[in-house]
Amino acid sequence: MSTRQLFEDVVATHGATVLRVCRAVLGPHADADDAWSETFLSALRAYPDLPAGTNIEAWLVTVAHRRSVDVLRGRARRAAPVAAVPDTPHGDADPEVDLWAALATLPDKQRRAVAYHHLGGLPYADVAELLGGTPEAARRAAADGIARLRTHGLLADDTSTDTRGGHR
């Protein structure tokens, strides 16, 4: 019998990371909650058949990518107006709020590259598979995204690309 981790422990260990990724891609709102829920429901369905040795976090980030694409398609179908986001930083407001707003101003590819690599811990080769293009292009998109976030004054200069581990 395999000694597969309880799914409860999967949620406890990776729930916050998946929520960060969903929020970075979709904004810190109900859409991100929907994508999180759909991600873990899909993961729960597939979990018993997951090959042994799978990198669970990378797998979840990949599922989160697909579910966030679904949510965006749904959003486009509904053609709901998207709240305008400020494109200039405003003084001493909450840096967290500003960060989500700043992420929303990034081009889609940069935002996803930042989300999947810096928040989700996905290696650039895997990011490239999700976004298309080469690993080098994914690395550049993430670096450009981080550079643009810095111009908003949000990230200290030492927020290098290694805000977290998991670069395999």
Binding site: L19, A24, L41
Partner: peptide, 26 residues
């Protein structure tokens, strides 16, 4: 501040999502 700190969700947010997952899974 780094990205990970700035984007950390609160425990109550994750608890609410967990409750929703329990219902959806059932």
């Amino acid at each position: 501040m780094n990205l990970t700190d700035l984007t950390a969700p609160g425990p109550h947010e994750l608890a609410a999502l967990h409750a929703r997952l329990e219902q959806a899974a059932a």
